[in-house]
Structure formats: C-alpha cells, structure tokens
Amino acid sequence: MSHKQIYYSDKYDDEEFEYRHVMLPKDIAKLVPKTHLMSESEWRNLGVQQSQGWVHYMIHEPEPHILLFRRPLPKKPKK
C-alpha cells in the first residue's frame, strides 16, 4: 500500500481532546469499513501511522476517505 499518499493534518485541540484528521488515497479508502469505527489494529493495517492513544471517533459520511481521530489531553494538575 502507498503510505506516501496518506495525508496527516496538523493537530488541533479543545479543552478535552487533541484531534487530527487523516486523508487516505482512493485505493486505501475503499478498504475502510462503512459499518463501524475502526480499532487501532484496523487503521494501522491500512497503513495509518501515528502514536498510540488515537481513537477513530467519527465517520464523516460525505467524505469517507477522511478519518477523524482524537485522544484525551493530559490532565492538568490542579493548583
């Protein structure tokens, strides 16, 4: 599979999560399941490479070739 064609967005966040999206080329996108969110082993098997802790959290129906990921931000110590 062509890992060079996978595009990784910059990371962005809110108060709770860090987010990123990953755009897959058409040949890989056709392998994305339409019935469920992928486990880490499933998206890694497609060639997506990112650190541990990312969760495929949403399917964007109009653009199924874009995978939406998030992971919890580290808890800030209370002052």
Rank of each mutant, 00 (worst) to 15 (best):
E42V: 04
E40A: 06
E61C: 05
R71F: 00
W43K: 03
I28P: 00
K75W: 08
G53T: 11
P74T: 12
Y12G: 14
H65Y: 08
R20M: 13
V55H: 06
K34S: 10
P72V: 05
S39Y: 01
Y12E: 03
Y57F: 11
H65L: 04
K34T: 13
R71L: 01
L68F: 14
L37Y: 02
H56D: 02
H3L: 13
P33Q: 00
E40S: 07
F17V: 05
Y7K: 15
D13H: 14
S51A: 11
K30E: 09
R44E: 04
L31I: 00
W43Y: 00
K34R: 12
K11E: 10
M58N: 08
I6P: 03
L37V: 05
K75P: 13
D10V: 08
R20D: 02
K79L: 12
L46F: 08
N45C: 09
I59D: 03
T35P: 04
I66M: 09
V48C: 04
S41Q: 13
K26W: 10
E63Q: 10
Q50E: 02
E16Q: 14
H60E: 04
L67A: 01
Q5L: 15
S39A: 09
T35I: 05
F69S: 00
Q52Y: 08
S39Q: 10
E61D: 10
G53V: 02
Q49G: 05
N45R: 13
E63Y: 07
P72Q: 09
P62A: 15
K26M: 12
T35C: 10
P25K: 04
Q52F: 06
S39D: 11
K78M: 13
K30T: 09
G47S: 06
D10R: 11
F17H: 10
E18G: 01
Y12C: 09
L67F: 03
Q49I: 14
M1G: 14
L68C: 09
M58A: 14
V32K: 00
Y57N: 01
E16D: 15
F17Y: 15
Y19G: 02
E15W: 15
D10P: 14
K26A: 12
K75Y: 10
Q5S: 15
M1Y: 15
L24T: 02
R71W: 04
M1S: 13
Q5K: 15
H36V: 01
H56I: 07
Y57V: 04
D13P: 04
V32E: 02
P72G: 04
Q50C: 09
Q52N: 14
P33H: 02
D13M: 15
H65T: 09
E16M: 13
L31V: 06
M38G: 02
H60N: 15
H3S: 15
T35W: 05
W43C: 06
D27I: 07
Q50G: 08
H65C: 07
K79S: 12
M58F: 04
K30D: 11
V32L: 04
N45F: 05
S39V: 08
L46N: 00
L24I: 11
L46V: 04
R70V: 02
S41C: 12
H21T: 15
P62L: 13
G53I: 02
L67E: 02
M58G: 13
L37D: 00
K79F: 12
P72I: 05
H65E: 10
I6Q: 05
D10H: 10
E61P: 11
Y8K: 10
P64F: 01
K4T: 13
S51R: 05
D27V: 07
V55W: 02
K30A: 11
E63M: 08
R70Y: 00
L68N: 05
V22P: 00
S39P: 06
D14L: 05
F17A: 01
A29M: 08
E63S: 11
M38V: 02
R44N: 06
K34N: 08
V32F: 06
L67Q: 02
T35Q: 12
E18S: 08
K34Y: 07
E15K: 01
V48A: 04
V48F: 04
P25G: 09
E40L: 04
P64Y: 05
S39M: 06
H65N: 12
Y12Q: 13
H56W: 00
Q5I: 15
V22N: 03
F69H: 00
P33R: 04
H60A: 08
E15G: 15
R20H: 07
I59S: 11
W54M: 00
G53P: 03
D10M: 07
K26Y: 09
I28F: 07
K4E: 14
A29R: 05
G47Y: 06
Y57T: 01
V55T: 08
P64L: 04
S51C: 07
M58P: 03
L37K: 07
D14H: 03
L31R: 12
L73R: 11
N45G: 13
E63N: 14
V22W: 01
E18C: 04
N45W: 07
L68S: 07
V55K: 10
P62F: 13
G53K: 07
H21R: 15
I59K: 09
P33F: 00
R20F: 02
K76F: 12
F17R: 02
K30C: 09
P62I: 13
D27Y: 03
R44Y: 00
S39E: 11
K30F: 10
M38Y: 04
K76I: 14
Q49A: 08
E40Q: 05
P74I: 12
P25L: 04
K4V: 08
G47P: 00
M38C: 04
K26G: 09
S39F: 08
L68D: 04
H36C: 00
W43A: 02
E18K: 02
P33E: 04
I66G: 02
V48Y: 00
H56M: 01
K79W: 09
P77Y: 12
E16C: 14
D27F: 13
Q49C: 10
M23H: 15
R70F: 00
E61K: 13
E40W: 02
H65G: 09
G47I: 01
D10A: 14
G53Q: 09
M1D: 15
I6M: 11
Y12R: 14
D10S: 12
I59R: 12
Q5Y: 15
K75V: 11
R70K: 09
K76Q: 10
H3V: 15
P72N: 11
K11G: 08
H36Q: 07
E40H: 04
H21Y: 14
I66P: 01
H3M: 12
K4H: 08
S51G: 14
Q49P: 01
E61M: 07
E61G: 09
K26S: 10
H3Q: 15
E40I: 06
I66C: 07
P74V: 11
F17L: 05
F17W: 15
L24C: 05
E15D: 15
V55P: 01
K30Y: 09
E18Y: 07
W43D: 01
S2P: 13
P74H: 11
K34V: 06
